[in-house]
Every structure is written in C-alpha cells, then in structure tokens.
C-alpha cells in the first residue's frame, strides 16, 4: 500500500518533469528566437535585445531551463509580454471562471451519467439501453463549439433564458453567477457524458454478473434491493478514476466554450497567448493545466487504492 503510494508519487513526478521539459523545449527551443517570435519581424534591435535579456535567452539552454524550473517552483512564471503582467497573477485572476465551469459541468454530467449508465446496464439490450447508447454516440460525435453555438442561438438569443455572453463573479450574487455559467457548463457536460456513461455502464454490467448477485437472489431480495445495495456498491469504484481523466477533456473543452460565451477564463487566456504568440504566458498556462491534470490523476489513483477494501486489505485481487 505505502509502496504503491510512493511509486505512484514518483511516477507522477517523473511525468511532471517530462511535461516541463517538453513544454520548455517546444516553446523556447524550436521557435529559434522566442523574442523575435513574440515581437514580430518589425521589432527594433534594441527592443529585441531588451526582451532577450529579460527572458534570459543569453544563457545556455540548460541554465535557462533550470532558472525557469526553479522560478516555477516558487510561483514565478515570468511576465506576460502582451499583458505586461506577472503570469501567475493572470492565472489566478482567470482561474475562478474555469474552475466554476469544470465543477458545475461535472455536477451536471456525473449524476445524469450514473442514472443513464446504471439503467442501461440493468435494462441491457432494451429500449432504455438503446437510447442511452445513442446519446453516448451522439455526445461523442458532437463538436462542443458547435453545440455551444447552437445553444447560444436558441436559449440565449432566441428564448432569452441566459445571457449571451460574459461572466458574473460570485461577489455579485451566487445565483447570478451560476446563471451566467450554466449554459456553457451544460455544453461542457454534454461533451463528457459519453465516456462517463460508457464506463459506468460496463462497470455496472460486470457487477451484475458477479456471484454476490446470485446470493441476493438466493436470499430472495427484490430486484430493487439487490441492485440498490449490492450491484451499485460493486460498480461505483471503477468509474472514479475515469472521472479524474475527464478533467483533461473538460479543460480542453473550456477553451472553446469560453471563447464562444466570452467568459474570461483560462481558455480565453490561452487563446490570446496563442494568437499573440505570448510564449511565456503560453508556457505558464500549459504547465499549470497539465500539472493539474497529472496531480489530480495521481491523487485519484491513490484514493482508489485507499477506498477499495480489496486492495487496502488484500494487497492483490483474488
């Protein structure tokens, strides 16, 4: 158990290190001259030299990487060229919007996916199952930006149920804030629901085939009771890990959704960084987002081990 945690932490750290290296190499090395890339070809030589100096480009690459990495560890991500502000500050400013979007969309997607996934497993090969699987396929095939566009046209512009654009901070009222991100969250939720239903359905199907389900029939329990207590309990743990993996997808979707609904989140910031070729800012966002994904995955993997009594006490599956 402890062994596993140490191993998992170590492999997580290796992945983090690798990500930082790749990000550094891709953004600082491949472009040739990042300063030139940021300023464009019409930059004056003085300005270029100044930016090179401030970006530390005159040092050898490994020293640049070392400085960047140590800076990163103390929260110093450098200065955004476009905004002229500290990247870390920019991230912190934009974070609430994206976190609210991610949390709300999960809060919408998970319960719905559990209900649909469980029902489609219980009524396998019946109409509920067919509908669930169609929803799944359609959810997978529908581009989120398109869905966002269509929802905007219908629910915001057409019916006027939601604001067309913009974010209301929590300080101006919880429900007003919720209202401003509800529609984008629903769009994000629809994007996640396919994979979620898939994993919950298959986990539930395998639980229903387990021998403890035979015992519930021997004991004469109703279907409701045997599913409610025994089948669900056996099905609920495996999907935990996939929910963490969804995070990468949500953050990716947030880029598109934020851009369409004009929400000032990380995704918009990222798009600006790419459009303006603000490499320092881009680097900060990439490291932050992927780092979050890695850490969350690591934590859920460890939690999974702790929550699951078969692993906690058994050390191995029987």
């Amino acid at each position: 158990m402890l062994n596993f945690i140490v191993k998992r932490l170590f492999s997580g750290l290796v992945v983090l290190f690798f990500i930082s290296l790749v990000t550094f190499i891709v953004l600082m090395w491949i472009p040739g001259d990042p300063a030139l890339l940021s300023l464009g070809t019409d930059a004056t030589p003085e300005k270029l030299a100044e930016l090179r100096e401030s970006m530390g480009l005159n040092l050898p690459w490994y020293e640049q990487y070392y400085q960047w990495l140590t800076g990163f560890l103390v929260g110093n991500l450098g200065n955004s060229y476009v905004f002229g502000e500290d990247v870390f500050t920019l991230l912190v400013q934009r974070l609430p919007v994206t976190i609210s979007l991610a949390v709300l969309s999960m809060a919408i997607a998970i319960p719905i996916a559990i209900v649909i996934g469980v029902l489609s497993a219980i009524y396998k090969e019946q109409w509920i199952d067919y509908i669930a699987r169609s929803v799944m396929q359609l959810g997978d095939a529908m581009p989120q930006f398109w869905l966002a566009l269509v929802f905007l046209v219908f629910f915001s512009a057409g019916l006027g149920w939601f604001p067309v654009a913009g974010f209301t901070p929590v300080e101006e009222g919880f429900f007003a804030s919720l209202h401003s991100i509800l529609l984008p969250s629903i769009v994000l939720a629809i994007g996640q629901i396919g994979p979620l239903i898939r994993i919950i359905r298959s986990s539930m199907l395998s639980s229903l085939e387990q021998d403890y389900m035979l015992m519930t029939s021997v004991n004469g329990f109703t279907k409701f009771r045997s599913i409610g207590k025994y089948a669900l309990r056996g099905a609920i743990i495996a999907p935990l890990t996939i929910i963490a993996m969804q995070l990468a997808g949500i953050l990716g979707g947030a880029v598109l959704v934020e851009s369409i609904f004009a929400l000032p989140g990380l995704g918009r910031l990222l798009l600006m960084a790419v459009e303006q070729r603000d490499l320092i800012l881009l680097q900060g966002i990439v490291i932050f987002v992927t780092g979050t994904v890695v850490v969350v995955n690591m934590v859920t993997d460890i939690l999974y081990q702790i929550v699951n009594p078969m692993i906690r006490f058994g050390g191995s599956h029987e």
Partner: peptide, 23 residues
Amino acid sequence: MRIIDGFMAFPGILLAMMLVAVL
C-alpha cells in the same frame, strides 16, 4: 512509458494549440 503518460496528460486541444503557436 512515462513519456507516453506525459503526452497523455496534455488535453488534446491544448497540445495542438501549443504546437500551432510555435509552428
């Protein structure tokens, strides 16, 4: 395998955007 895991941690669109920014 860690390298592969590392690439897996990038949300698809993010990796693509990063490369587009550079290329």
